[in-house]
Design a protein around this nucleic acid. Structure first.
Lengths: 221, 221
DNA sequence: GTAGGATTTGAACGATGGTTCAAATTCAAG
DNA sequence: CTTGAATTTGAACCATCGTTCAAATCCTAC
């Protein structure tokens, strides 16, 4: 079977792959990876299942690309925040907010995007590295907050897991047509999760997110 | 095919069903519902797949019983805390702690236990009711905390979702052989999630959990 | 030991789902 | 229009999975 190159540069093929990835992301989000069939994805992308295999080698590869996209976006967000020079607590706030927006606006994220099975190979290693790096960044931020005196003494790992749990789980219930935008939810979550770390008597004010471009399109909702 | 009655009272059959439910809970937790096969469950329970069908009508019923168990345990926990007379903030703390313990000690909980598809029938309605009731209890607690002046002004629904996300996601990473017990994790989570709701300048001290029997066996670890 | 009910077995069925692939169709350049 | 590459189609393959069921085996009471 002829299959297109993974690094297709052709505008048309690239656009097609984009469409497929969108469709896959949507399906994975709605039904999970295992309950999503390739025929589902194909149907959503407006093609036949055989055609889908012209663009992606198999289901696993499809998921891998979805995962990479998501993790790259989170990575980019964290990098920009890293350059902001804000105190750790505020950076953490914006990172939480940004992640909620990342996962719930524009191209949908799903839990499948964030879970990488142990046995995967080189690609899996790369993805796991990306994912773990993200987690380490949050831990580092928490540790910095403690160093700066903003946060109380606590285990950064556990706190990170609480944050990631709350944030990642948003994909299960957030709906764009709901009452609140992803940004609003993100801010409320960040408020709760960051305040929960504060040292006794430590004041905190939620930072503006105007100067930090949160990936997830415009705010003119 | 002959199938045993759903309300089997026989000690032997009851014990067998218990074993199967344990096996299923374990498998669902490790692999998710859809990626778990009935043969997996049967193997784990030490029987053949045909035998498994003697005890449970089908995969869906098996999941339904698992879900009901989990939700009943959470219900029981919430009821006991409802009788404690503690302030809302403390009750919320213990509820969070208890839920983490519920999901991660003894019979394992899984995400599958907590997600009930829309199209399910009467049994699904019952389960959804149980689940929704649990969620409403948390919301009510948060509202009470606000009334009592302990919590700042916020949306109880969003705060509840943050709590449930963080707590439910523990099933994805918690391992009994890890460094911390479910109770310790539960307390750290509760600390973070409850403190995050406090009004400015409001003191808070984590309550003892000695007098409230948290379902999840003994603490002598 | 016998009888009948309880439980288990193991093979098979039908559906589903990931994947393949030859043929058909479309597209683009000369 | 022709040619060759790109893309799509649709049927089929094979493996897996949920489920079934007759026969075998086990268990218990008389």
């Amino acid at each position: 079977m002829v299959q297109i190159q993974a690094d297709a540069r052709g505008t048309k093929a690239h656009g097609k792959r984009r469409e497929i990835l969108d469709a896959a992301s949507f399906c994975f989000r709605e039904r999970g990876f295992h309950a999503t069939g390739m025929r589902d994805v194909a149907a959503r992308a407006g093609m036949t299942v055989g055609n889908l295999y012209y663009y992606f080698r198999n289901k696993e590869e499809l998921l891998g690309f979805c995962q990479e996209e998501t993790l790259q976006r989170l990575d980019g967000l964290a990098r920009e925040l890293g350059r902001s020079g804000l105190p750790a607590a505020e950076r953490l706030f914006l990172l939480i907010e940004g992640q909620v927006v990342c996962l719930n606006e524009g191209i949908p994220g799903s839990l499948a995007h964030l879970e990488i099975p142990e046995s995967e190979g080189a690609k899996g290693d790369r993805l796991r590295k990306l994912r773990d790096r993200h987690e380490r960044r949050i831990r580092r931020l928490i540790r910095q907050g403690m160093t700066e005196g903003a946060f109380r003494e606590l285990d950064p790992k556990v706190a990170t897991l609480a944050i990631l749990g709350a944030v990642n789980w948003t994909v299960r219930w957030f709906r764009p047509e709901g009452g609140a935008s992803a940004r609003e939810i993100g801010r409320a979550f960040a408020e709760q999760l960051v305040r929960g770390l504060l040292a006794e008597g430590e004041p905190f004010e939620a930072p503006d997110d105007d100067d930090i471009p949160i990936h997830g399109e415009d705010d003119d909702e």
